[in-house]
């Protein structure tokens, strides 16, 4: 049972990790908690659903198209709701993000209605049985895709020129712009990539659980955010680790403590980690300047 639960946690955690990446990338660059990220995840799932069911696009193409569309949405949100506030207080930007999140969620509710939509499964359902655990084909695909996307992102940030520029911007915006980096362009790219990853998570969760609803972004958004902080917000490997740790803790909490306190266990872990290491697991302590 323990190993089965570990697998359950890993699958759950990998979707959290993908959502957490979007939060952490945006935070790393502009120090803003992008509350609308959960809604972008929801939008990605809807975009994938419409592409597959209405426009009959093959699944893999739909997957990447949904990511592209979500990138556009992310860029638009940034342009309309965050960019004008870049020079004002962080709290004002936070409220603007919350407003954008409420707006997007209710836009979806208004256009799509509240009933759950069924996501047709692109894969034959198949279950693999091993000595210690069972795992379904969809779960394997989710794990595989999540890890591929995460590795791809790490390579992009470490190896490419744009990735380098992103790291520079995260470290010091003003100096980076003095070095000839177009800050606005970098922020746009960050939102695009973060949103694409959120949409990927949305589509994968859509095919995994077979349903898409306008309010689906709320709880995963919150959990993704928690995962990002757990790993040290702004830190990309931290977000992956945080997501997986959160997923496993949640599952273990339900399995060995009580399913009533499944979510509470996850939040308790968060508080404990923060008390022991106030900047998250992999976060670097910031130097206070007087």
């Amino acid at each position: 049972m323990f190993i089965q639960q570990l697998m359950n946690g890993l699958v759950l955690g990998s979707t959290y990790a993908l959502i957490a990446l979007g939060y952490t990338m945006v935070y790393g660059i502009i120090e803003l908690i992008n509350f609308a990220h959960g809604e972008i995840y929801m939008f990605g799932a809807f975009a994938g659903l419409i592409l597959v069911t209405v426009l009959k696009v093959p699944f893999f193409l739909a997957f990447f198209l949904a990511m592209a569309l979500a990138s556009l949405l992310g860029i638009t949100v940034e342009y309309l709701a965050y960019r004008p506030l870049r020079r004002s207080t962080r709290l004002a930007a936070l409220i603007s993000a919350i407003g954008a999140s409420i707006f997007l969620q209710n836009l979806a509710l208004w256009r799509m209605g509240a009933q759950p939509y069924t996501f047709p499964s692109p894969f034959e359902p198949k279950v693999y049985q091993t000595a210690f655990f069972t795992i379904s084909r969809v779960e394997i695909i989710i794990l595989l895709f999540s890890f591929l996307l995460m590795i791809g992102l790490s390579l992009f940030i470490q190896k490419t020129k744009i990735g380098k520029a992103m790291r520079a911007t995260a470290q010091d915006k003003d100096t980076a712009s003095l070095m000839g980096i177009n800050i606005n362009k970098i922020i746009t790219i960050t939102f695009a990539i973060g949103s694409a990853l959120g949409a990927a998570a949305g589509v994968m969760v859509g095919i995994y659980f077979r349903t898409v609803t306008p309010s689906m972004g709320l709880m995963p958004g919150l959990k993704g955010f928690v995962a990002a902080v757990l790993g040290g917000i702004g830190n990309i490997p931290g977000a992956m680790m945080g997501g997986i740790l959160l997923g496993i803790t949640e599952v273990m909490g339900a399995a060995y403590i009580s399913s009533q306190y499944r979510d509470a266990v996850a939040f308790a872990l968060l508080i404990m980690v923060l008390l022991l290491k106030p900047t998250g697991l992999l976060g670097r302590p910031t130097q206070e300047k007087v």
Partner: peptide, 22 residues
Amino acid sequence: ADLRLLIYGAVLVLMMRLRPQG
């Protein structure tokens, strides 16, 4: 009715754009 929260969200964004200090 159904546009209630839609408008509410938009108002929050606009308010912060126009008067970020509250």
